[in-house]
Amino acid sequence: MKKTNKFIKRNLTLAALSLGIGMTGQVSAHDLNQSLIGGFFGASATDLSMIQCFSDPGLGGGAAAAKLSLRVRKSQGSSSFLNVTVMKDGVAKSTVIGQTPNVWSPWIQVAPQQGNGNYMMTVSQTHAVNSFYTIEYHCESAGGAHTGTSLVTLQNQ
């Protein structure tokens, strides 16, 4: 995929989903489909991404983000547990999923002092196997509206 001078690897994609977290009607979500190749890079293989939350005049009336919401599932079963950790400004949340594919983790929400900005996300696992996962993520205002969201991959293993 052509990158030119742009570092954002993942385009913002929109899908009509029901998130089941108190939101009604159509919502926008972003997703990341990636692999963690433990069989190649070992059990310490880690994917590292930065999710940027920002005020977008076209979303939520340009409100600032208050938090990042995220959940993960495996797209294929593997013998490893998968851990996803998100952190910003000293606030961190994690979720772990097991071996069964296509089962979403609970939503985790990171709500730091300043919602706009860069959230660091790591994905790691317990075994040196290949895992394939999908992460659904979006930034939200204090009122629950989606705000500007983008993702940059910093390390891919």
Binding site: N5, K6, F7, F54, A64, S150
Partner: peptide, 8 residues
Amino acid sequence: ISRPVESV
């Protein structure tokens, strides 16, 4: 912050 910078 108005929109993200497109490079890190």
